[in-house]
Design a binder for these strands. Structure first.
Lengths: 227, 227
DNA sequence: CGGGGGCTTGAGGCCACTCAACGATAGTGG
DNA sequence: CCACTATCGTTGAGTGGCCTCAAGCCCCCG
């Protein structure tokens, strides 16, 4: 692991911009980068929330554990996503890198300082929190009321949307991660994928099973019978 | 159904206070009351969000539906709770009164107008949204990874906490509501309650089955093995 | 080449669901 | 006051979907 100060001043997918700040607005906000090897804990549940994070490269899982080891992944954070944003003082999830991952860090304290003065910033914080809430609400419906094939279909469509673009999507997470996200076991996820493949909705590419091409989005959407 | 202007000026559990406003601060905010009979829709999913609501009396369920009728209740709103607060323009749940219910209404537009000027108000909006998010996150763990008895135990403890006080808690919602909140069927909820009763964790009071006395909170907490 | 991790597939079991019957309660109208 | 009905809750029997356990394959990597 190594730390380095962000050098590139390209104002592209920039944390400051995400929060509604221009680079010049506030020199208080320190913006550093940090790299994690695959499977490294970024922060733990109930740890004090010192930083807010943005994925620059890689992918992150946020999860809760029960004492006997059962795990529920609440969200995957992909390139560009901001995570670890807490309103209280402690993190409510454990966050781990799924693959080799680089994140941008913002000191929470400095963000709060800015937020107090700047209505735009706090407005953006509200928008981000609302987005997380919306995702959680949809996920409750999935976890409470959908069967395994419906869950996997919804997952694929979500990843297709969020991995934005590529005809073939390359999933960073394992079957176990997907299972713990969908409230299933890895075997059930595998069987659901097989059924969808046999039904012609998708196909595996390459020799690893994490590259998937969606052949029939309509069929997947048919499993996504929202309201 | 009837509408009437709120007469009582007791500044006690007052919507304005909840949003961080004193009564005198802003005369723009209209504060009216509305009464719903049992089982009445307050607003529907995807309807434009014109009002924000606070339960004065009664209880409300917020739910999403799948096209084939499967229902997931995302939250119960009890006395004092604020609901229907959206950041976007549309409601993301359908809200229905569970029993005869009186709510206070605030025009969303007027709230937004105030929020733009008042940092305290928008800060409170952020806090409320965060609270909802936290609840949803915990509920995902329940729906994804807990068995039926654990879910029912968690539900009872939540209601015990939120119905605040009374030794005997009087649940406003039916077994079906509880089931749709916990991602179970009503029969499974009933069986879980029976098991907990036979285990000595609780007891039914009266001839209706909705009045429950918790006899052994420790036993219930033992099912609530969080992290 | 051996070992380990990830994925698939099969066999069997269990927990929650489905279907059904029954009792209790509350509301309704004669 | 008493049927009559509808609603709600419990309980039982049987089913089914997902989980558990296990084996085997493939790929990567030392």
């Amino acid at each position: 692991m190594f730390v380095r100060i962000a050098k590139d001043q390209t104002p592209r997918p920039n944390s400051l911009h995400e929060f509604g700040m221009t680079s010049g607005t506030n020199p208080l906000v320190s913006l550093i980068e940090f790299a994690y090897k695959k499977g490294t804990e970024i922060y733990g549940e109930k740890e004090p929330a010192e930083y807010v994070y943005q994925v620059k490269n890689g992918a992150v899982r946020s999860y809760k554990l029960l004492s006997d080891g059962r795990r529920q992944i609440g969200a995957f954070h992909l390139v560009g996503d901001i995570f670890g944003l807490e309103n209280g003082n402690a993190h409510r999830f454990t966050a781990e890198s799924i693959i080799e991952t680089t994140v941008r860090l913002i000191k929470r304290h400095s963000l709060e300082t800015v937020a107090e003065c700047d209505a735009v910033v706090i407005h953006n914080l509200l928008n981000m929190t609302t987005k997380s809430l919306q995702h959680a609400e949809d996920h409750m419906l999935l976890l409470g009321r959908k069967d395994s094939v419906e869950r996997v279909a919804a997952f694929l469509l979500e990843m297709d949307r969020r991995l934005a673009g590529a005809d073939i999507m390359s999933l960073p997470m394992s079957r176990r991660d997907i299972a713990d996200y969908l409230g299933l076991t890895l075997e059930t996820v595998s069987r659901a994928l097989t059924r969808l493949r046999q039904g012609g909705a998708l196909d595996f590419i390459g020799n690893t099973q994490r590259e998937i091409r969606l052949l029939d989005r309509k069929q997947l959407l048919a499993f996504d019978l929202k309201s």
